[in-house]
Each structure stands twice: as C-alpha cells, then as structure tokens.
Simulated scan of single mutants.
Amino acid sequence: MRFELASVPGTAERPNEDWASLSLPATGQGGSLVVLDGVTPPRGGDGCVHGVPWFTSHLGGALLELSGSRRDMPLSEVLALSIRRTADTHRESCDLSHARTPQATVVAVRWDGESVEHLVLSDSTLLLESPNGVVHAVLDDRLDRIPREVLRSVSATDALRNQDGGFFTAAADPGVAARAVTGTTPRGDVRAVAALTDGASRWTDLFSEGSWAELMGLLRKEGPHGLVGRVRALETADAGRGGGKRWKIHDDATAVYAEFQDPVGPPGA
C-alpha cells in the first residue's frame, strides 16, 4: 500500500490549524485516516483558552484512536464520542456555548478487507477512485449554499453555525455527527482515496485547474507535496493580479493520499 501526507501552514506567522494522520493495525488488515481543518475564528475570541490547534490535535487524536479501537461503531458514532471526549477535557476552563468555540471540518475514512467507510463534515473533500479510474467526490456542500455576502458578516455567520439552514462543523456538540455525509463502498470498488482540506482542494474547486479525476492523477504522479506546491504557485499568481480568487492569500493546506493494494491476492501480498 502507498500512503503520502503533506500539511503546510498558510503563513509562518500562524500555527497550522489543520491536523492529519493515519493508522494501520499490526495485523496489516485495514486502517483509518483522519483529516481536520480547524476553523480560524474572527477577531473577538472564541471563549476558549486553548486555541484551534489544541482542539484539532485533541479531536483528531481521539478520532484516529476510536476509529481503530471501536470498529463496532459507525464513523458517525465515533465522531460523536470523539467530540464529547474533547469537550470534556476543557469544559471546566472554557465557554463551550460560544458560537465560535474551537471547531473543525472532518474527513474520516476506515477500511478493511470488505469495505471502505467514510464520513465528511463541512467543506473538506474526500475523493474515492474506482479501479477503472472513475473518481467520486464526497462533499458536504451546505456552506457553499450560503451567499458570500452573508458569510462576510461575523454575526450572520455565527447565527448559522451548527444550526438548521446553516452549516455544521465538529465543535462541542456531539449531535452534529449525525449531520455528516456518510457512506460505505465495497473494498473492491476502491483503488485509492484522497482527503483534502479546502486549502489543498483549491486546485480544482477555486482555481479550476482540472477535474477531481485530474487532481487524483496529480496526486498519484506528484504526491501531496506536489499538489500543495502547485496550489501555492496559483495563489501567488492570483495575489499578483489583485487576489480576486480567495479571501486568504494562502490557507493551511493538507492532503492525504492512500493507494490500496488489490484486496484479492495471495497471502502476504
């Protein structure tokens, strides 16, 4: 199997708020990967003394551990328990009722010899590639449905966070896990997967450099570091033209690429 990961901060002045990791059991059968994109709060605070990187590392660690140790739970339940555990670690010191309490988008994938299970919450992207090269993008597009002029208002955006008619992220309420986009695909129907924060998916969904299938081909050829490098070049060129394509010149960018071996093969293959 082939696994590659890249996570690059948007600027040197701020810590990377993305988090990504993967795990493979000692048996060599199956595995899990998790990618989080921490939501940068606007000025004015978020009621938490720890900050977004602390939150994403705690939530990501819980998600990765539980996705492996609680294979009896669907990923939506794993996410709910992970959110609850993370909230419990700072419930006494922080205001978890604050609309901007630390939060993150989520992509989680778990596989074994029979199936590939996935979960997507908010605007990170999961790509599933079939053995014949067809790429399916798993997207939670609720944030995209909100007009940009609404999102430019902090108060209007706060009113839509984790609310019906708005958008959902992993924050302090385990109930949002039920809002995630989930599914299961037969293992033999998946050749490779890619998980991307929106800082990496810009190559396709912002700059329109190629389709999701072409992005998957780029990952296979150049790896996640190659993709992020191309995104950075596009961002720099866009900034030189006045920056009409994005709100941030550079965003934290994370990509995980996993290429599976044939599930049907001789022992030890």
Rank of each mutant, 00 (worst) to 15 (best):
Leu227Ala: 13
Ala104Lys: 00
Gln163Gly: 03
Ala99Leu: 05
Leu96Gln: 15
Asp252His: 11
Leu143Gly: 02
Asp88Leu: 14
Pro74Gln: 09
Phe167Leu: 02
Glu222Asn: 08
Asp95His: 11
Ala253Cys: 11
Thr27Lys: 01
Leu234Cys: 09
Val49Arg: 14
Ala26Thr: 15
His98Asn: 12
Leu160Phe: 03
Gly60Phe: 04
His58Lys: 07
Ala87Asn: 10
Gly229Ala: 07
Ala233Arg: 14
Asp251Ser: 06
Asp18Leu: 01
Asp262Lys: 06
Thr182Gln: 11
Thr105Met: 08
Leu196Ala: 11
Gly229Thr: 01
Ala62Val: 15
Ser82Ala: 15
Asp46Tyr: 00
Asp46Ile: 00
Thr11Lys: 12
Gly68Trp: 03
Glu259Ala: 11
Ser201Ala: 13
Thr169Leu: 07
Glu129Pro: 10
Pro131Leu: 09
Thr86Asn: 09
His250Met: 09
Gly265Leu: 05
Val176Asp: 03
Asp95Ala: 12
His250Ile: 01
Leu79Pro: 03
Asp88Ala: 15
Ser57Cys: 10
Arg70Gln: 10
Pro74Thr: 11
Gly133Ser: 12
Pro74Arg: 07
Trp54Val: 01
Glu4Pro: 08
Ala269Met: 05
Pro266Glu: 06
Asp95Asn: 15
Ser82Pro: 07
Asp46Trp: 00
Gln261Leu: 14
Val35Asp: 03
Gly223Gln: 14
Glu92Asp: 15
Ser155Glu: 13
Pro15Leu: 07
Thr182Ala: 09
Leu234Thr: 03
Ala200Asp: 04
His225Thr: 08
Gly188Phe: 02
Ser69Tyr: 08
Gly166Ala: 05
Arg91Asn: 13
Val106Gln: 02
Ala108Tyr: 02
Ala6Ile: 02
Asn132Ile: 10
Gly44Glu: 13
Leu128Gly: 00
Arg84Gln: 14
Pro102Val: 03
Gly60Met: 04
Glu222Val: 08
Thr105Pro: 08
Val109Ile: 02
Gly166Thr: 13
Trp19His: 05
Val134Gly: 09
Val228Ser: 01
Glu222Pro: 11
Ser76Lys: 07
Pro131Gln: 10
Thr56Phe: 08
Gly45Cys: 10
Ala108Arg: 06
Glu235Lys: 12
Gly165His: 05
Val176His: 02
Gly47Met: 04
Phe207Leu: 08
Leu218Tyr: 05
Pro53Trp: 00
Met73Ala: 14
Gly60His: 00
Gly243Val: 02
Leu219Trp: 10
Asp251Trp: 07
Pro9Arg: 10
Gln163Glu: 03
Ala156Thr: 01
His118Tyr: 15
Val228Glu: 01
Trp212Leu: 07
Thr101Tyr: 12
Asp88Glu: 15
Ala159His: 09
Glu65Ile: 12
Gln29Ser: 08
Val176Ala: 06
Val134Arg: 13
Val34Lys: 06
Thr197Asp: 11
Gly44Asn: 06
Ser153Thr: 04
Arg14Trp: 04
Ser211Glu: 12
Val34Glu: 02
His136Val: 15
Pro53Gln: 04
Phe3Asn: 07
Arg100Cys: 00
Val154Ile: 04
Gly30Arg: 01
Pro9Tyr: 05
Ala159Ser: 10
Gly45Asp: 13
Asp164Met: 10
Asp173Asn: 11
Arg145Ile: 04
Pro25Asp: 02
Thr125Lys: 06
His136Gly: 13
Trp111Ser: 00
Val78Cys: 09
Arg246Tyr: 00
Pro186Val: 03
Cys94Glu: 12
Glu77Ser: 08
Thr197Tyr: 13
Ser57Gln: 12
Leu227Tyr: 14
Gly28Tyr: 04
Arg142Gly: 06
Arg230Cys: 06
